[in-house]
Simulated scan of single mutants.
Amino acid sequence: MGETVRVVIHALLIALVIRTFLFQPFNIPSGSMKDTLLVGDYLFVSKYAYGYSKYSLPFSPALFDGRIWGSEPKRGDVVVFRLPREPDVDYIKRVIGLPGDRIQVLGGVVHINGVAVKREKIDDFVEIEDGRETRTRRYRETLPNGVSYSTLDLYENGFYDNTPVYEVPQGHLFMMGDNRDNSTDSRVISQVGPIPMENLVGRAELLFFSIEEGERAWAFWRWPWSIRWSRLANIVR
């Protein structure tokens, strides 16, 4: 009995160390990152990618300010972070602007420091719900550093398809969701705005599980039909 207790305690300590310093599981609760990430995706976030802040620790204790062994994210990274106004909730978006950048959206096209980001139309994103097919315009966006990914365009002249110029403060990042008309991100100054480096939790790395929207992950008897098998073990880009 004593040996079993020791094994359990050791296992819990190892799991705590891994979750705190190496990898944290995270699930996707909304469609703001479609089609890169879907509702029902489960992924691992690397905690060490950008160093450590109080948000790296369980319950976010205020033991220190800033980041330890910090490194700046690259443009295009998919990042989990905490909002300054809602520090208990995890958000996930893509890094579009770095400190000192000027970001603007004109006609749905992102401009970085006055230069339009390359954007080309690709095949529509298709979803089937209750037997009905829904098609959404999809574009391939390529950032100045060569990072390429797809974005969705739900509406012509959406609310944030034309914005003022946002200047990214030092020590902050400008985040945007890939589902551009269905993402509350740094374009919404009153709710999100630029994100302090201290608020980063980690970088999205690997999809380890994915289940159809509306299904329950614990309903293992439905897995043969409910798991999105083609998404398992995909690298997040």
Results as ranks from 00 to 15, higher is better:
residue 151 T to F: 04
residue 140 R to E: 15
residue 155 Y to D: 10
residue 138 R to T: 07
residue 157 N to K: 10
residue 160 Y to F: 12
residue 157 N to T: 02
residue 161 D to S: 05
residue 146 G to M: 06
residue 168 V to Y: 03
residue 159 F to P: 14
residue 163 T to F: 04
residue 170 Q to W: 00
residue 163 T to W: 04
residue 152 L to K: 00
residue 134 T to K: 13
residue 145 N to I: 11
residue 152 L to Y: 00
residue 146 G to F: 03
residue 151 T to A: 11
residue 161 D to M: 06
residue 153 D to L: 12
residue 168 V to L: 02
residue 158 G to A: 04
residue 151 T to G: 05
residue 139 Y to I: 11
residue 149 Y to P: 10
residue 160 Y to D: 06
residue 157 N to S: 12
residue 144 P to N: 08
residue 139 Y to N: 10
residue 159 F to W: 15
residue 153 D to S: 11
residue 171 G to K: 00
residue 135 R to V: 05
residue 156 E to H: 06
residue 143 L to H: 13
residue 142 T to G: 01
residue 167 E to N: 07
residue 146 G to K: 02
residue 139 Y to L: 12
residue 142 T to H: 06
residue 132 R to Q: 15
residue 171 G to N: 06
residue 168 V to T: 01
residue 162 N to T: 06
residue 141 E to D: 10
residue 156 E to S: 12
residue 156 E to T: 07
residue 135 R to C: 07
residue 139 Y to W: 14
residue 148 S to D: 07
residue 137 R to T: 02
residue 148 S to H: 03
residue 139 Y to E: 14
residue 157 N to P: 02
residue 137 R to Q: 13
residue 148 S to F: 02
residue 169 P to D: 01
residue 147 V to R: 15
residue 166 Y to H: 09
residue 146 G to N: 01
residue 156 E to V: 09
residue 166 Y to D: 10
residue 133 E to P: 04
residue 155 Y to N: 11
residue 165 V to A: 13
residue 145 N to R: 09
residue 171 G to E: 01
residue 152 L to T: 00
residue 171 G to C: 03
residue 165 V to G: 06
residue 151 T to M: 13
residue 134 T to L: 11
residue 158 G to S: 09
residue 134 T to E: 13
residue 148 S to K: 04
residue 144 P to R: 09
residue 143 L to R: 07
residue 142 T to F: 05
residue 136 T to K: 01
residue 145 N to Q: 08
residue 158 G to K: 08
residue 139 Y to D: 13
residue 169 P to H: 06
residue 137 R to Y: 11
residue 158 G to H: 05
residue 135 R to T: 09
residue 152 L to I: 00
residue 139 Y to H: 13
residue 141 E to M: 08
residue 156 E to C: 02
residue 171 G to P: 00
residue 155 Y to L: 14
residue 163 T to R: 03
residue 169 P to F: 04
residue 160 Y to M: 12
residue 132 R to K: 15
residue 150 S to Q: 13
residue 134 T to I: 13
residue 152 L to D: 00
residue 134 T to Q: 14
residue 140 R to D: 06
residue 141 E to F: 06
residue 159 F to D: 15
residue 143 L to W: 05
residue 155 Y to M: 09
residue 140 R to F: 10
residue 169 P to K: 04
residue 137 R to F: 08
residue 171 G to A: 03
residue 163 T to V: 05
residue 152 L to N: 00
residue 144 P to F: 05
residue 160 Y to P: 06
residue 167 E to T: 15
residue 148 S to P: 02
residue 147 V to L: 13
residue 161 D to H: 14
